[in-house]
């Protein structure tokens, strides 16, 4: 597992039924491209977050396939229309097999 991984989620705590809300996500990750040499000239193996899956009570909101062209500390912003209260779940899949997760509830009135 990568060290110092931290996830950050921004979405409103509450919304009206039918509102379109904006979700911002970020994970601290080097996104090692696999094309770099270290200071001794040895190739650094690719090590990236290759998938971000955001679901709402099990239903896919977005499913993102990331490649090495995504910047260090991958950031994504997207929108979702909410009709009921529930929990947004986020899963970041690392090349090394680790899965980092975060969740945030929204209350819809």
């Amino acid at each position: 597992m990568a060290t110092g991984v931290k996830t950050r989620i921004k979405l409103p705590d509450t919304a009206g039924a039918g509102d379109v809300i904006t979700i911002k996500t970020q994970i601290t990750h080097q996104m090692e491209t696999g094309h770099r040499l270290d200071s001794a000239g040895v190739p650094l193996p690719r090590s990236i977050i290759h998938r971000l899956h955001c679901t709402f009570d099990g239903e896919t909101v977005v499913d993102v396939d990331l490649r090495p062209g995504i910047s260090t500390n991958p950031f994504f912003e997207f929108d979702a229309q909410v009709t009921r209260s529930g929990v947004f779940q986020f899963a970041w899949h690392d090349d090394d097999g680790a899965v980092y997760t975060a969740a945030k509830a929204i209350s819809v009135t």
Binding site: T3, G4, R8, K10, K24, Q26, Q30, E77
Partner: peptide, 24 residues
């Protein structure tokens, strides 16, 4: 930024949290 972020990850892993425009 690339140089600093690489250096921070290498020398001070997990210590520095940068909150940019994206997160207010």
């Amino acid at each position: 930024m690339a140089l600093f972020e690489e250096g921070w990850a290498r020398h001070y892993p997990g210590m520095i949290d940068w909150v940019g425009e994206d997160f207010g």
